[in-house]
Structure formats: structure tokens, C-alpha cells
């Protein structure tokens, strides 16, 4: 760790990118960097500011004038309202839906990460037959669209057959003299409508990306590390828990954010596997229920969208401190 200079120092010294004297950096180019960053940030923010302002306006104001016009008439209080937020927060079962969302999101974030980290380590640093093909196989599954999986998995949860191979029977009977008896085997899993079912579904759907991203990171860790650890007598489990996991914190944190966001904002998986009944429904479904079919209640949707943004942003901020430069570099030297 000590090998890298703490960021604070650089800021205060006010010169030199990454604390070096060798670069061409000067105040002019630093200002240029600031300007470019500012412009990009502004472009990115405009739509989101629009969302925030819209969520604070009355439905009539939303329909009659553009959201940016509020800057010209900021004092006109008749257009401002907190009613949208009140309506969303006080809507039936909002608190329960928020809780359900957490119960769904936390395990559905952690489970795929743990499973994928073990797999990523194995794919990176263990020798075994079929390793290459297994990895390619996992990554190739990235392309399977969620939508084709919903019906088969739901059937499985309801006790349907895993592989419906009955269609093979006539084919085999036609090609060969054997008479084939297919027996479909199913188990009454009864996972439909349970948190367990939805956790497992999110785990399954999130695994390919998790394995792919984490293997990329873990695989790029310096091999000297493993060698020296092994010379010290550490086995795979020790290397994994004491070396790999601490070193992979930035990668684990970034994937955790994405998986969390994805699960938190998911509508379809929750709807299909958990349902719309009040005791289990998640935030996105509760928000959707507020919005009428022909009544596009934009005022409620914007307020709801903003409320549901708060937690993911908190998670992002709190995980951001893990994205620290030089964790790996420091470890190599240490």
C-alpha cells in the first residue's frame, strides 16, 4: 500500500498529475481537463435534471410548459408541488414494497458474486481438463435473452420436466429399431412466488456477466503473487481467501453495483417469479401499479423514479471508496 502516494497529497500540492513532475501538466491543461469534464457532466445531467424538476411540478404544469422554463419563473410557486412525492410515498404498501425490494436485492447481489468469484479463480489459476471450454461456455451464455428463459424456468418452478425430451422418442423410433420409452422427471419445487425462487433466478441470469468480469480481473493479477504464496505453503483456499478476495475488492465492488442496480430496478423477473400480490411485490411493481393504462401519470412516475434512485446512488457512493488506485501495485511490492 505504501508504495502509492495518497491522493490527498496530490490535490494539495496542486501540481503534477499523479504526483509526478515529469508530465507536461500545467495549469492550462488542467483547466482544459476541468472544462471538458464539466461539459460532459452537464450533457449527462440535463435529462436527469429534467426528471428531478418534472417530479416537483404539477401535472398541469408538466403538460403545458417545458421543465426548463422553471428557471425563468422559479418564484412562481403555483407550479411547484411535493404532492407527487407524497402520493408515491403514501401509496398503498410502499414501505412494504421497499422492504421486499431489499430482501430480493441483497442476496440476489451477493449470491452470484460469491459463486462467480470461486469460478473466476478456478478459471484463472487452476489447471483442469475442460477449463477453457467451460469458461467459453459460461461467457457464451451472456447472449441468451432473459425473455426466452422465463417460461421454461417458471414451468420448472411449478414442477415441470427439466429437459422435455419426449420429442426425441419418435425420432429415435424412426431411425432405429428400438422402441424408446421417455420418462419425464420433475420435482414439485414450488418455488414460484418465493424469495428463494427469485434469488436463484437473478443468480442464474447474473452469473455469466459476473464470471466474465471477475475472471478478467482476477486473471490479470500478477502471477508472481500466486507463486510466492504457494512457495510459502498456501493452498488454493488460503490464496483465495487471504490474497485474491482482498485484492479483488475494486472489481467485486463494481460488479456488486451493477448487479444491485439491475436487481433493484428489475421489473420483469420480479413480476414473473414473485408476482404482484401486496405481500411480496417489489418497488418497481408497486410504482407500476400506481400508473394507469391510459393515464400516463408522468408526475408520479418521475417522483417514483427519483425515490427509487436514492438507494442505488447511496450504494454507489459508499462503494466508490473501494476504487482506490494501486491496491494491486501496492500488494505486489508488499
Amino acid at each position: 500500500m505504501s508504495a502509492t502516494s495518497p491522493p490527498v497529497e496530490d490535490t494539495q500540492s496542486g501540481k503534477g498529475i499523479k504526483g509526478t513532475e515529469g508530465g507536461v501538466t500545467n495549469t492550462g491543461s488542467r483547466n482544459l481537463v476541468r472544462v471538458i469534464v464539466l461539459v460532459i457532466v452537464l450533457i449527462w445531467l440535463i435529462p436527469a435534471i429534467g426528471l428531478l424538476i418534472t417530479s416537483l411540478r404539477t401535472p398541469a404544469a408538466i403538460e403545458s410548459s417545458g421543465w426548463w422554463t422553471v428557471f425563468a419563473s422559479i418564484g412562481d410557486t403555483s407550479q411547484w408541488t411535493l404532492q407527487n412525492y407524497r402520493e408515491v410515498l403514501e401509496s398503498n404498501g410502499f414501505a412494504g414494497a421497499f422492504l421486499n425490494t431489499l430482501v430480493v436485492s441483497v442476496p440476489a447481489t451477493i449470491m452470484p458474486i460469491v459463486i462467480a468469484t470461486f469460478a473466476a479463480y478456478a478459471f484463472s489459476w487452476m489447471e483442469f481438463k475442460g477449463r477453457f471450454l467451460m469458461f467459453v461456455f459460461v461467457v457464451a451464455l451472456l447472449v441468451v435473452p432473459l425473455h426466452v428463459a422465463l417460461i421454461p424456468i417458471l414451468q420448472l418452478y411449478n414442477g415441470g420436466p427439466l429437459f422435455d425430451v419426449s420429442w426425441l422418442a419418435p425420432v429415435v423410433s424412426f431411425l432405429t429399431p428400438w422402441e424408446v420409452v421417455t420418462v419425464e422427471v420433475g420435482i414439485p419445487l414450488d418455488l414460484n412466488g418465493t424469495f428463494l425462487g427469485v434469488w436463484l433466478a437473478h443468480t442464474g441470469f447474473g452469473l455469466p456477466l459476473a464470471v466474465y468480469l471477475l475472471r478478467n480481473y482476477i486473471g490479470s493479477l500478477p502471477s508472481e503473487l500466486m507463486e510466492s504464496a504457494r512457495i510459502d505453503g498456501a493452498d488454493h483456499y488460503a490464496i483465495f481467501t487471504r490474497l485474491i478476495i482482498p485484492l479483488s475488492v475494486p472489481a467485486l465492488a463494481s460488479f456488486a453495483i451493477f448487479q444491485f442496480l439491475w436487481v433493484f430496478n428489475d421489473f420483469l423477473v420480479a413480476l414473473v417469479f414473485l408476482g404482484e400480490t401486496a405481500d411480496v411485490r417489489v418497488l418497481t411493481i408497486a410504482l407500476n401499479a400506481l400508473n394507469g393504462q391510459f393515464q400516463n401519470s408522468w408526475h408520479l412516475l418521475t417522483a417514483g423514479a427519483f425515490i427509487s434512485m436514492v438507494l442505488p446512488m447511496v450504494v454507489f457512493f459508499s462503494l466508490q471508496r473501494f476504487f482506490v488506485r494501486g491496491m494491486t501495485a501496492g500488494a505486489v511490492k508488499g
Binding site: 430496478n265 421489473f267 418497481t284 410504482l287 400508473n291 412516475l301 434512485m309 442505488p312 446512488m313 466508490q320
Partner: peptide
Amino acid sequence: SMIFLPMAISFIG
């Protein structure tokens, strides 16, 4: 965070 912000917005939003 500002660039990341859109990722946190639900699709409906």
C-alpha cells in the same frame, strides 16, 4: 457519479 447516475434510473424513469 454524475456519469454513473443514468444507470441508477429505473427504465421507466
